[in-house]
Design a protein around this nucleic acid. Structure first.
Length: 134
DNA sequence: GTGATGACGATAT
DNA sequence: TATATCGCCATCA
């Protein structure tokens, strides 16, 4: 192997591969994709990767990737329209209803088969965790 | 090699 | 919920 660490294109390809796993009608956050890809990947890196999609934008469901707040940072790419076309609903504030469309991540089987890591359960909310802590 | 930038995240207020 | 601040990491000039 020449560069087993992070080949630029391969690095982005991994992000695209994970993004392609997001099922129809569901959405994932940049942080989720970064967590699954691992390898020092970061939410911003995912954003850059999606921004560098170029011709691949036709094969990668980039519109299903949004920020953690459920908002859309790409108001100029018709992302919201694409999501609505898939059945994704938005609240009155223009944010995606994460409670109903948030992707739970790929299966452990798929993740291991492709060299990724499954998305850890996001249960334990701060307030809830703190409530049970005492 | 350094600084600036970015389709962000988490925490605090 | 929204805003402000800080942090993390990769890419580009």
């Amino acid at each position: 192997m020449s560069t087993p660490t992070r080949d630029e294109r391969d690095y982005y390809e991994r992000i695209y591969t994970v993004t392609c796993q997001v099922p129809h009608g569901q959405v994932a956050t940049y942080g989720d994709i970064a967590t699954i890809v691992g390898e020092g990947c970061d939410a911003r890196v995912v954003g850059h990767a999606l921004g560098a999609l170029g011709a691949r934008a036709d094969r990668v469901p980039w519109q299903r990737v949004i920020n953690r707040t459920g908002g859309i940072s790409t108001s100029g790419f018709g992302q919201r329209g694409a999501l609505e076309a898939e059945g994704v609903t938005f609240d009155d504030h223009g944010h995606v209803r994460m409670d109903s469309h948030h992707w739970t991540g790929p299966t452990e089987e798929w993740a291991r088969a492709h060299g990724f890591q499954p998305l850890p359960p996001r249960a334990a909310k701060p307030a809830d965790a703190q409530l049970r802590l005492f």
